[in-house]
Design a protein around this nucleic acid. Structure first.
Lengths: 207, 207
DNA sequence: CAAAATTAATTAATCGATTGATTAACTTTT
DNA sequence: AAAAGTTAATCAATCGATTAATTAATTTTG
């Protein structure tokens, strides 16, 4: 067998990510995590220093996994619309891949008492925000885009994602007519979302 | 003095609504509610049967307050676009008025263990969803609207709201450049949101 | 109308359960 | 044997809820 130490650590991370995104931070107990991960409760504190440390470790893992994903788009020498479309494809794919983490982030972000957690989350997500803001403002500056309420447009973009992921009972009702928890982000819905985003930006930003 | 009995009950409701929307259901303790409302903890159980009962009472109050608000629009004999604009104005005004309740609803909706609460919330919010879905499908049927991905369009509408209210640290960063908790939904932002919504539907639905 | 009886409102104290975390002992690895 | 990994048992704190007792308000009765 391979490294079984890391197996346990990773098992905790995986189980915790799933439970946090399902139940939220408070309702997820360390005992439940330990039980589902088939691990002693103390291991959780041994590896991560505590419940909040585990939560932050999940965020850090997610940061590390997507650190390089972002930088590459804005450097390319392509049109502003192409940048936008490229950003959308990458963003939606990434959203489908890591929707559990994204759900958990938006769940806890707004809770006032979680200052440290909230800072981490906002810091992570703001990178996406800054990047797309730059694409749009550059496009407006070089005359490719029409002048729009860029903030509202961006709010609609991120908001659509948040609605699909975090308000999934409503989104399921909208897309499938039922509220069962069955996977909503099918390949079909993902493709529709990409098309929707591209159409949205095209409609708003075309001169 | 007037009815001081109702004062206490209402005080609990008001304080609880504020705390639930700030801290979420789990992190809001009955002790904190009682302390802030200057009321004995037992009163909370006396009037509402418990923490969950109090939460549901807040929802019920909100349902009652907005029961009549909805029915009137679709009956009018006006164009589909006018219906849409009328809906938007009413919806955004309502959103500004009761943003605390809306925040708390979307916070707890997706938590799997809150079956009863989740049902209540989805039931409430689905009325808005059904109504706007009807406006759009009617408009498409009578030729006023172009054929679009109506589900995604609706997801963007509600999603924009959810982003502004529930992801307020991000929205504050977007609209004000800082994450302080100061009121985001100013009259200015509300007006921009209305304009944004109207433009969105116009762009998507114009033939 | 006033005394008595009943109900409603309110309080302080405390219940059992659960929480996150820690300890000390034990086992495995290096 | 030193270090890292792992376990069962347990800690203090806090949770939501309830209890028994007390006061206030209302209704019934004489």
């Amino acid at each position: 067998m391979g490294d079984e130490k890391l197996d346990k650590r990773n098992s905790i991370l995986e189980v915790a990510e799933e439970l946090f995104s399902e139940l939220g931070f408070d309702a997820t107990t360390t005992r439940l995590i330990a039980k589902k991960a088939d691990v002693n409760i103390a291991m959780l504190n041994y590896y991560f220093g505590g419940k909040e440390g585990l939560y932050l470790a999940i965020l850090e893992k997610h940061i590390a996994a997507n650190h390089s994903r972002l930088q590459t788009i804005n450097s390319d020498n392509i049109s502003s619309f192409d940048k936008l479309n490229k950003f959308i494809d990458g963003y939606v794919d990434h959203m489908q891949r890591s929707c559990a983490v994204q759900k958990l982030m938006y769940m806890e972000m707004s809770i006032s008492i979680r200052n440290r957690i909230s800072e981490h989350i906002v810091g992570m997500l703001s990178k996406n925000l800054i990047e797309i803001k730059k694409i749009i403002s550059d496009g407006v500056a070089n005359g490719s885009f029409a002048q729009v309420d860029a903030e509202m447009l961006i709010a609609s973009m991120f908001g659509t994602k948040v609605y699909l992921i975090n308000a999934s009972p409503m989104a399921s009702l909208l897309f499938k007519g039922s509220t069962d928890a069955q996977e909503l982000l099918t390949d079909d819905v993902v493709q529709r979302l990409k098309d929707h985003y591209k159409k949205m930006f095209k409609l708003y930003l075309s001169k």
